[in-house]
């Protein structure tokens, strides 16, 4: 057949594409379970890092089952809903601009470490160049921060990218998301440094203001929703306390 004819050219192209397409499709299918497992391991490592547990890809699953004893999903208003919390991809939900906050699902993970219980919340928001995300662990009072980890896709190295370092993350420990009156105030990432003794502020990053603001906005937007759930739980906690007090009086 004439190598330069149109028919030959078309046939060659069609055969090439079929061969290549088949090879790639088969590889992708074969490797799918491994890729899924890797993504799941990574998520477990991230969740555990919020309560200060270092896991590696080798022992992620083991440690996850050791520390995380429950996972649940809430809706926008703070009602518990059915479903598998671990399988919810908050970053994916965040990127889907057609999803309203009301339509999204909000997972949370309950951890037990040294006989204390913590609630771990995944967060996602926008930095300067791309998404930022993180996990926040709250103590049993659903108010005090036990630990926080952040990460980003492509923030500026040395500036905004510093949100995933200890110097930014550690000060979150001990901060409170509600004020003394029980009102939700979130945690502010303050430019120029947090006020001394403030329970609701941490230092922002010099030169990384937009990333810092992005983290603050992410905290506020996310915690506001979870707070709907927390305040409900706290009320019922208070009720039981009052009830037991009453019982004692009787």
């Amino acid at each position: 057949m004439n190598k330069e004819s149109n028919l030959y050219t078309f046939l060659f192209a069609i055969i090439m594409v079929l061969v290549v397409g088949t090879v790639l499709a088969v590889t992708s299918e074969v490797l799918q379970p491994r890729k899924k497992q890797n993504a799941a391991d990574k998520k477990m490592i991230d969740i555990l890092s919020a309560i200060g547990v270092d896991a590696t890809r080798n022992n992620a699953k083991e440690k996850y089952t050791e520390y995380i004893y429950d996972a649940s999903i809430i809706d926008y208003k703070g009602n518990l809903i059915e479903g598998s919390a671990f399988d919810i991809d908050v970053l994916f939900q965040y990127r889907d601009k057609t999803l309203l906050p009301e339509d999204k699902k909000y997972p949370m993970f309950k951890a037990r470490k040294n006989n204390s219980e913590y609630t771990i919340i995944p967060m996602v928001g926008s930095g300067l160049w791309g998404p930022v995300w993180g996990f926040l662990a709250l103590e049993k009072d659903y108010n005090t921060v036990y630990g926080a980890v952040f990460d980003h896709e492509k923030e500026t190295p040395g500036l905004g990218a510093e949100i995933n370092t200890d110097f930014f993350e550690v000060p979150f420990k001990g901060k409170k998301i509600r004020n003394s009156l029980g009102q939700f105030v979130s945690i502010e990432v303050k430019k120029g440094g947090a006020d001394k003794g403030s329970k609701h502020q941490v230092d922002g990053i010099t030169g990384g203001t937009i990333t810092s603001d992005g983290v603050a906005a992410m905290l506020e937007n996310t915690l506001e929703i979870y707070n709907n759930y927390f305040s409900r739980i706290n009320f019922s906690l208070n009720d039981t306390i009052i009830q037991s007090l009453n019982n004692n009086i009787e």
């Binding site: 790639l24 590889t27 490797l31 491994r34 890729k35 890797n38 993504a39 391991d41 890809r57």
Partner: peptide
Amino acid sequence: DQILKAFLPD
């Protein structure tokens, strides 16, 4: 890319 994702995720 597929092979790296599966065997060297980091």
